[in-house]
Structures are given as structure tokens and as C-alpha cells.
Design a protein around this nucleic acid. Structure first.
Lengths: 224, 224
DNA sequence: AATCACGGTTGATCTGCATCAACGCACGGA
DNA sequence: TCCGTGCGTTGATGCAGATCAACCGTGATT
């Protein structure tokens, strides 16, 4: 079922692998394999030593951290084409978060050692990794600013708006991950998320079909 | 006044420049220079194209982002030996935050183009940059977890505890930046910060001299 | 010395979101 | 078919921290 060709096709389009170049990419893919995992499967746990670099091919992966006695949060969500936790692999340090499949997923598994060796050999791959981490850093900065300055409703609106881009401009948004995961990613409880959805709908910034499909009439009106 | 030898001595000790190796380091330092700036001087503004990579030699630099109609926050604080915003320099993208001197500072200015050229030439520097960004990403993850799961008081306690490490184990902590900057970095108002300080002092986790010096009797008791 | 501006502290009040609780609905298994 | 069980929603209440306001010590200006 997991055809190598499909995996190759998807990641060929990703910014990261384009920057890495075909030679390094081939070196990475040769000893790698894909895997299909059901919802709520765990890719790795906080504290594990990284054995693989995971690339999401289909579905969503959530990165969750927990603090003793304070529960868990979702630090980041990864969609198709994204690399989970290159940081830990690069640093050879234990993961500081747990990765969990939020939907059924297909992931490409690149052995960590292969990735590190190839980075040491390929200038392009090293540079691509630097840029990848730089982009990821900026995403985290965005999230910090969101948490510190914006209300729960605004955070949800911006979260959805970012998804509109990924789709055709049509305005139908895919939110395949469970509500609790979205709530945790946005730093609020499921209850608050539910109310925020209702409020955005009331204001006409959003429509929800009976099948659960979410439609955005006007992306510009969403982002405040 | 700014002696090149002192600058060299300081950054030689930093993890980043050690990993980069002496050759790349020399290439970086040759066309660079140091600058002394007063408190509240602006190093660069949100939206600027990066011309220099800034390395803090003395004092503290704050990275602040602002959202229209919501005010500003402090995304990160940088102390001696730290590189500000390598991400934007690497990506050749406009800064998404403003950098401001929070105390009088001495900074090393490395021309952005020189940094990019040297990265392309030196495998070690590229690798060091990758690791630097990986570490910075992890710091931001920590901050997100803090904001989502911990109370204002806990965030302050952990912030101070991290400073204890940097000093001799003695327990006297340097907090040279203005209270408002610390408050913004921790995602709270100056009023709440003040109350958190008072509460930690009341619990005996902290002592404050009349000169404003902050002393931590027991670092382990601070982190909850 | 008087004035002002500024940074930090303290007090009173307000509010956004968490928490606790109940409910509806879809789905799966006996 | 009936009865769980899990997930999302809605309602009522509580609280951490924001906001508004006053105050105080310090240093700069005149």
C-alpha cells in the first residue's frame, strides 16, 4: 500500500527536499521506509533518543509536552510534507516532547544516523536544514506572540485562516484532528474552543455544515 | 574603548563559535566590529532587512514583537555570548521583531553577507548554525509550554532559576533589565510580576536587598 | 530646594477563560 | 435493539491575572 513513488512525489515538492538537492535526497531515501499508523499511535516519547527523523506524508501529527502535575499541551501540529523534530535529531539530544498521530498517518522514517551522516557530507542538505530550523523558529515566535497578545477567539481565527491558504482558495477548510488537539495547540480548553467556534459562526466569519465541514466565506474577514 | 581582543575572548568561549572552528571564526571576525549602545537603543526594527548578525558581548538585548492594537511583547532576551536572530539572517527575510538594548550593551556586528558567504564555505560553521537554531527552537518550545501550563509565579521562579546557573553557584542573581521587560518576556503585566516577586519572597524562595540585588537561597526550592 | 518624570509597588475592581457539571449524539459491541 | 463509551457542545460558577488608580522613592532639570 505505501508506494515509494508516492512518498517521493510528495516530498519532492516540499521546500526542504528541494533545497537539499536530488543527490542528498536519494541518499536519505535509500535506507528509509514509510509506515502507516492509526490515530493516537505514538511515534516517539518525551525523553527518547531519536532513532529516526519522521516526515509526515499524510494525516496530522501532534507534538505534545507535559509538565508534572499540570497536564499536557500541544506544542505544534505537523501536516503532510513537514519534518517532525529535526532539532532533536540534529542535536542528538532526547526529545522534549511526545509525537502522536492525530489522524491515521503515513510517515517516512529516515534513520537518524543516516540523516546526520548525510548532513555532514552534503552542503546543500546542511543548508536546507538550517533554513528549515530557521523557519520553525519563526513559527514558534508567532505562537508565543499569539499566546501573549491575542484572545482565544483571535487565535482560532488565525489558525483557521492559515489552513485556508493550504487548500484551494475555495474556503473549505480541513480540520481532521480532534477538537481537543486543536484546543491544546491554541492554548485553551476544548470548552473555550467550542465557544470560540460558535462565536465566529455567529459573526458570519465561518459556516459549519451538519457533516462537520468548516467553510470560510472570506479569509480576509477572519484575520482581525 | 571596545578592544577586539576582549570581544574575541568572550565569544571564543561560546558554544557556537567553538563549534564553528577557528578558521571560520577568523573569517567572520575580520570584517566585523563592535559597537557600544545605550539603554533603549534600537538594533533593528521589525520589517528591516538584516544587514548584520548581532552578537551580544555585554548587557541584555530584548526581542520585541508588536501586534496592531494589542501592544508589544518581549519574545526573547539575549545575554552575553548569544546571537540575535540568526534565523532572519540565514533566510534573508525581514525581521519579524524589533531588537532593543535593555541595558547599556556592547555588540559584535558581523555583516550579514559575510555570514552567509562563510556559511556556504565552512562546513563547521553551517553545522554550528544548525545546532544553534535547533537549541533556539527548543528554547521557544520551553516558553510555549511555560505560557500554556504554568502560573505567573512559576514562570518567574523558573526564569530566575535559569539565571542562577549562569552565575557562580552563590545564589546572587543579576536582573539588569527593567522590570517591564521581564514582565513582557514572561507574558504578564508589571503589576503581576511585582506581586509574583513579593510572593516568592514571602515564601522564602528569594531575598531582595535594599539595593535591589536578588538572592536565591536554594535554587532547587525555586523550581517547583 | 522645588519640580517633574519615571520605574516600581500596592490596592481595588473587573473579566476572560478555566473549571465543574450535565447533556446530546454518533458509533460499536453484546 | 439496547446500552455503553467517547467526543463535542452548552450552562453555571470561580479564579488568576488584567486593568485602573494611587502612591513612593530616585534621579535629572531648573
Amino acid at each position: 500500500m505505501p508506494q515509494p513513488s508516492r512518498a517521493t512525489a510528495l516530498i519532492e515538492r516540499s521546500v526542504f527536499f528541494q533545497a537539499a538537492g536530488p543527490a542528498a535526497m536519494a541518499d536519505l531515501l535509500r535506507p528509509s521506509f514509510t509506515q502507516i499508523l492509526p490515530r493516537s499511535a505514538v511515534l516517539f516519547e518525551e525523553g527518547d533518543e531519536p532513532d529516526f527523523l519522521h516526515v509526515v506524508l499524510e494525516g496530522r501529527v501532534g507534538l505534545q509536552a507535559c509538565v508534572a502535575g499540570r497536564g499536557r499541551t500541544m506544542v505544534e501540529l505537523f501536516g503532510p510534507g513537514e519534518l517532525c523534530l529535526a532539532a532533536a535529531v540534529v542535536l542528538r539530544l532526547p526529545y522534549l516532547a511526545t509525537a502522536m498521530a492525530l489522524t491515521e498517518i503515513r510517515v517516512l522514517m529516515i534513520p537518524a544516523e543516516v540523516f546526520r551522516e548525510t548532513i555532514a557530507r552534503s552542503r546543500e542538505l546542511c543548508h536546507a536544514t538550517t533554513e528549515l530550523l530557521a523557519r520553525h523558529w519563526r513559527l514558534m515566535v508567532d505562537q508565543v506572540v499569539d499566546l501573549k497578545l491575542r484572545s482565544a477567539e483571535d487565535r482560532l481565527a488565525r489558525f483557521i485562516a492559515r489552513r485556508v491558504d493550504e487548500e484551494t482558495g475555495a474556503g473549505v477548510v480541513e480540520l481532521p484532528e480532534p477538537r481537543a488537539a486543536i484546543a491544546a495547540r491554541l492554548g485553551m480548553t476544548p470548552e473555550t474552543l467550542s465557544r470560540a467556534f460558535a462565536e465566529l459562526e455567529r459573526k458570519g466569519k465561518l459556516r459549519r455544515g451538519p457533516d462537520g465541514a468548516t467553510t470560510v466565506p472570506d479569509r480576509a474577514a477572519l484575520i482581525p
